[in-house]
Each structure stands twice: as structure tokens, then as C-alpha cells.
Nucleic acid binder design. Structure first.
Lengths: 111, 111
DNA sequence: TTTATAGTGAACCACATGGTTCAGCAAGAG
DNA sequence: CTCTTGCTGAACCATGTGGTTCACTATAAA
């Protein structure tokens, strides 16, 4: 499924504290690579890689403006991750709700 | 922050389609390593590694029963990921809500 | 036109990941 | 006790990740 790859990239992009902070920073408005790199004391090249990962996941969009690159928050990708978690949560809660029934009825099938 | 490491591990664990399917499978009840491995045609060793990643993230708990290992869904870790996404979403939506003000008031500060 | 600045790409590094095979070990069955 | 089964650990492999430095391009400024 292509949808699986989208989830892969989205969750992987979120699995890094630096990138999560970048997202929060961009929540306050667009920024250049240099402006993003500065608070982390990171090289421009390093920051560009992070931005590239976020861009690949659709969480950020960028655009070259003059000799600078303007990075902005992407739009809908996070909703994919969110809805998967919600789906899984529903599944999990349903299991908890049925725990007593599970133990009384399915004891022999508990594998 | 330790909390950041928890988020790192949780999102990283979710960033793999196989592991997401394992979680869904475990939503239907506990399973052994072999039972988890079978539908993927994967070696036991490979599956154990996946389970280990999920366990490290707190998404799954396991327990040795006889010569088999019983894997169950973990409890609260997913809520961490969920609440981070919600936090970020609020931030993002607030930015969208303020877009007009942003364009009219902060045009000169658009960097 | 010269020079400073912002980003880019290639090469490199150490380490993690996702998988395998093979050799064991421990528990249950006969 | 012996045999089978389920899991485990070590070793290995190819690829990805998070970071660097260095050389380069392209734009903006003087």
C-alpha cells in the first residue's frame, strides 16, 4: 500500500526530537534553513537534511526565494498519523472494554 | 528530556508497517512470537526484534510462559504520541486561524 | 566587478535497522 | 531419557540515519 509508506515516512519524521522542535518552530511562521539551524548550533547541511525528511513526509513545504530557502509547515499529513493512532486506539479500547468477557468466555482460546 | 526519548521510541516503533500490523494483531488478543511471525513469513528471530522494539517503546509487554513468549498490547504509551500530535495540531490550527491577521499585520516580518 | 552570504552536493563517519542463518537451550511429549 | 518445538543469541549483511567538513554555486551588496 502507498498509504503505508506515507505512514512510515510520517512517523519516522516525527521520531526525532530535533525535527519535532523544527515543526513547532515553524508553527510560529516560516523560516530559512539558517534560521532553523541556528538555535541547534547545527550546520546548514545537517539542517537541510532534517528539512528534507520533513518535506518527504509532507509535513513541511519549502520554496527557494533568492539565495534563501523558505520553509513552511505542510498541511494534511499529520492527519494521517493521527487517524491511524485513533484507529488503533479504538481497537485497543474495545479490547479493554471486553476484558471481562474475554476472560470468562475465551479462557480456552487465550493464545 | 526523558519524555523526548519516549516520543522518539514510540514514533520510531510506529514507523514500520510490520510493527503497526503486529499491534493490530495483538488488539485481537495475546500471541506468541511464532504466531506473530507466521502471517509475515518471517523468521522467529526477525519477529522477536520487532517485538523488542515495540516493547522498548512500551507499546507491548511480554512474558515468558513455558517455552513460549506471550505478547500483549502495552497500555499508555500511545497516549504520549497522541498528545504530542494533538499539541502540535493545536499549534498548527492556531496558525491557520490567524492567517489573515498574519498576512495583514506581519507582512514585514514574514521570514 | 568584487566580495560576502545562504544554501547545496559529495564524501565520509559511526551507529542503528531490518532482515537472515546457524547453533544452542529449555520445556513439553512420548 | 530422548526427541521435538519455541525461542534466543551471536554473527553477519545491506541499507539508512544523523551528523560532519570541504568545495562549489548563486544571489545580494558594496
Amino acid at each position: 500500500m502507498v498509504q503505508q509508506e506515507v505512514l512510515d515516512r510520517t512517523f519516522a519524521a516525527l521520531a526525532d526530537a530535533t525535527r519535532r522542535q523544527i515543526l513547532i518552530r515553524l508553527g510560529q511562521g516560516p523560516a530559512s534553513i539558517g534560521e532553523l539551524a541556528e538555535p541547534f548550533g547545527m550546520s546548514l547541511t545537517g539542517m537541510k537534511k532534517h528539512v528534507h525528511v520533513l518535506e518527504n513526509a509532507g509535513l513541511v513545504t519549502t520554496e527557494k526565494v533568492g539565495r534563501s530557502r523558505r520553509c513552511r509547515l505542510g498541511t494534511e499529513r499529520l492527519e494521517d498519523a493521527m487517524s491511524w493512532i485513533r484507529f488503533y486506539q479504538r481497537l485497543w479500547e474495545r479490547r479493554l472494554d471486553g476484558l471481562d468477557a474475554y476472560f470468562t468466555l475465551n479462557k480456552e482460546d487465550d493464545r
